[in-house]
Design a protein around this nucleic acid. Sequence first.
DNA 1: ACCTGAACACCGTTCAAGT
DNA 2: ACCTGAACACCGTTCAAGT
Lengths: 181, 181
Amino acid sequence: MARNKRDIDRQLKRDTIEDVACGLFMAQGYEATSMAGVAAAAGVAPNTLYWYFANKDELLIAVLDRMVGRVFEALAGMQHKPLSARLLWLLKAFDQASGLVTTVHARVEQSDAVRDWHERFHRALDALLVEQLTAQGMDAQQAATMATVGTYVMEGLMSHPHSARERETVVRWLTSLGLPA
Amino acid sequence: MARNKRDIDRQLKRDTIEDVACGLFMAQGYEATSMAGVAAAAGVAPNTLYWYFANKDELLIAVLDRMVGRVFEALAGMQHKPLSARLLWLLKAFDQASGLVTTVHARVEQSDAVRDWHERFHRALDALLVEQLTAQGMDAQQAATMATVGTYVMEGLMSHPHSARERETVVRWLTSLGLPA
DNA sequence: ACCTGAACACCGTTCAAGT
DNA sequence: ACCTGAACACCGTTCAAGT
């Protein structure tokens, strides 16, 4: 944690860089955004970024962490809503950031750091889903399969263009699977 | 089609370049493979590639077309086998090429040509799946949803590491959905 | 500790010149 | 028509030098 003014200043600057990078990554895509572009938008020299982030992938991970944190926080405040509504909200929240899902998968092959982040993310998400499904009375084996399927269907819906109508149909179908037939 | 010796020679050389590129893309990934690397492996100067392919994305598309063609051909000869066996075969066939699924999604954002290819591919695959599902007596609306879901689950299984056991469980679950409960 | 200008190695692509 | 060596603009990253 930040102990003194220097640490706080450093964290503030890191935050602004992450803010700027997040905006550019979402608007132009990760690959199309250069470190020089991020630096210019943040008002610093290109190499200054390397004082705060080891490399471009670490900057990506910082942006991802902040996004995932906010999304999970928002979802936690929606527990009373039905699962289908929460999933549709999630798809809408990622409308602007859909490219980042693909970016992560693309960088997994090149960067160990992104691979680790991706693995941790999927493990955490899987545990969360399995927990929710078993809490609803689903047996562990079935919950494991449903968590995998649900994750991949959501990833597919995020990375490919769909009308609101199509999304709703697929999400309703997905969430109706656990219910008695 | 090739009309004379010159056209045939050109096609042969194109094929060798595609062969070499295909091997390198699968072994190292698309992004990690440089045009200079492809050229060196093919025994030509880097810029010679641009006589045969407009740019790196067009070379990718040529490689994709050849792979998809072969896979669809092989699948056509397996119509007698159950759907689950064909899907598991597909997953195995893409074990070495799983990165290309992600690559296509990553390039969709940067390249119009790849975006067009991706759209055409999904339309063709979707039509094929809907046709097979309706032929089995499923109604059109349900078939459309199942085709989307099936595609995304398969994409997810291809792009993420799984044990053979996990694959089988998910694929069996997927193919059992159309059957009476 | 923090920031910079200048440089490095690499990349996809182009151009002028050859045959 | 086909191929090349040399160059161009760009990229992520590093380094030596400043404060």
